[in-house]
Amino acid sequence: MAAAMLSANAGALAMPPAPTNVVATDRPGDGGGAVMLQWTAPAPSEVKEARIERSATAAELKASAPNSAAWISVASAPTLAGEGLGFEITDLPPSAANKSSTDQLVFRVAFLGTDGEMSAFTDSNTVVGVANIFLAKKLGLAVSLVLVCGSVILWILLARAGRSVKIRRIAALDAVDEAIGRATEMGRPVLFVPGIQDMTDIQTVAGVTILGRVAKTAAEYDATLEVPTCRSIVMSACRDTVQAAHFGAGRPETYREANINYITDEQFGYVAYVAGRMVREKPAACFYMGAFYAESLVLAENGNAVGAIQIAGTAEPSQLPFFVAACDYTLIGEEFLAASAYLSGERDQLGSIKGQDLGKLIAVMVILVGCVLATVAAFAPEGASARASAAFQNFLGG
């Protein structure tokens, strides 16, 4: 009986079979830091998991000397992970000579048995992880770029060919003529505030573009236009814009450079000057077009107090509620940035906006499809919907 027990214990602690056909290959379509490792496994009942190690690079051996180890543990993987495409090993150290690839590496795999015994390691071939020109994970980004840019170019060409491109009416821009006409009738000036940022801010650029239309209308109506600025470069841009608008209106003699001046870079010093000027001169129309922050409500409330028609436009979400509450008209977000195309009617700009809208529609459809797939996958994590959701996320780079 004792002999039988010893025989049973020896069988229980038997070493599991070693893996066979261990092959390491560079992962296609990556940045050079990943390798695919394949192996053939025995029956799953005999093995608990696979242990993977890789050879240490020369730099790692030198850094850890004199206690350097020739092999470094990489990961533990399910027994059957090496089947099919193989098990992906990422975050491999780059080569000192070429950062876009790895050194020559050797991997080895051993199986851990259900009783805790480890099999012998089986070495793979030598492999080098190389960076690929085309990254597969960026395929979704490439497709999105082609679709959006293609739609923009297509609509620009269609607009140039005479295709009608309609943009919905924007009440704030349609009210420009009304506001300036009212100022002319009352004999009071028009105040234009181009925000508090420099010309490096896209909102300031959009505001100066709208200033061109306001200045041209003011020149045609013979209204006084005042533009206080808080950046010297913005002052120069505004002067050039207003002068060009007066020439465009055929009234270059009415241009007054002194009405466009630089005040100060200090935020509330600038706001104090503008607010004081509003109280003293009582403009009949106030335009706030650009980047605004804490001063938005100060300006809008002062304009409201002097009875001016106020038209505001900004892409700052935190300031929009103040403008909406205190102004007669407000350009919200993209309305403000698309104003130049709306006012000019220039076909290239209109086609560009139409193409961007098509790109946004595609983005919304992609989001909806992703939400539906993710929702269905949550209720059936092992089904085809889960695999489709994972594939969709991988395609989009997730």
Score class of each variant (00 low, 15 high):
A3M: 14
M5R: 06
L6F: 04
A12C: 02
L13K: 07
A14V: 07
M15L: 09
V22P: 00
T25L: 12
G32L: 04
G33F: 00
M36V: 12
A41P: 01
P42Q: 01
P44W: 08
A50D: 12
R51W: 05
R54H: 04
T57G: 13
A59F: 03
S68C: 02
A70Q: 13
S73G: 11
S76Y: 12
P78W: 07
L80T: 15
A81F: 01
G86T: 08
E88K: 14
I89N: 04
T90V: 15
A96D: 14
T102I: 03
F107E: 05
A110S: 12
F111N: 08
T114S: 10
F121W: 04
T122M: 02
G129C: 09
N132M: 07
F134Y: 13
K137F: 05
K138V: 00
L145D: 13
G150C: 10
I156F: 05
L157Y: 13
L158P: 01
G162I: 09
G162L: 10
S164T: 14
I167G: 14
R169S: 15
I170E: 08
L173K: 04
D174I: 05
A175C: 03
A179L: 06
G181P: 03
R182V: 07
R182S: 06
M186E: 08
P189I: 06
P194S: 09
G195A: 05
Q197E: 14
G207S: 10
I210L: 14
I210H: 01
R213D: 11
Y221R: 14
Y221G: 03
D222W: 02
A223N: 05
T229I: 04
S232L: 14
I233F: 08
C238F: 05
V242E: 08
H246S: 01
H246Q: 01
G248S: 11
R251L: 06
E253V: 12
Y255W: 13
I263G: 07
T264E: 11
T264N: 06
V271F: 06
Y273L: 03
V274F: 02
C286S: 03
M289G: 11
A291W: 09
F292M: 04
A294Y: 04
E295W: 01
L297Q: 13
A300M: 04
A300W: 00
A308Q: 00
I309D: 05
Q310P: 00
Q310G: 00
A315W: 02
P317G: 10
S318H: 10
F323K: 00
V324G: 02
A325S: 09
C327I: 05
D328H: 10
T330E: 03
E334C: 02
E335G: 10
E335M: 08
S340K: 11
L343D: 11
S344G: 06
D357W: 00
D357V: 05
L358Q: 10
G359R: 07
I367S: 07
V369L: 07
V369T: 12
L373R: 12
L373G: 15
G383N: 00
A384D: 11
A390Y: 03
F392R: 12
Q393H: 12
G398P: 00
